[in-house]
Amino acid sequence: MTVQIIEVELDRLEDLWSDGLSETYRSYVEALSDHDPAVRPKLGLAASLIEVGLRLQGLGGRAAPPPTLLMGDLCLARGSRLLTEAASKPVQVAFARAIEGLSASAASGKPSAPVRELLLHAFTATE
């Protein structure tokens, strides 16, 4: 099941898996051990794609070259779509707010909390 989801969801992003995405994914899945096992792979993949996507883009640092930025964009978009499939509405909103906060800090040159910390916190959002 997990392998199938990952294979399907890595279209155009295959190289990322061996380039750090797999470790990031495993970290999130471990951290989400109290979630429903049926949705854990999708949630873990969503969060790891978003974290890796932001890193690829160079958000808050040096801008990525255009092809890398586009891969980062696809990571964010796919991560968001996976959240619409597997996460509650409050979690979807909390993820979006986390990215808003990170982007606003990056735009104004202010430091922000680590991405993983923010995204793990977003999973705790409730109504």
Partner: peptide
């Protein structure tokens, strides 16, 4: 530009 795009991508999805 990257930060502005990301911000409004996230805001719109929210």
């Amino acid at each position: 530009a990257i930060a502005v795009g990301d911000y409004y991508f996230a805001k719109a999805t929210r």
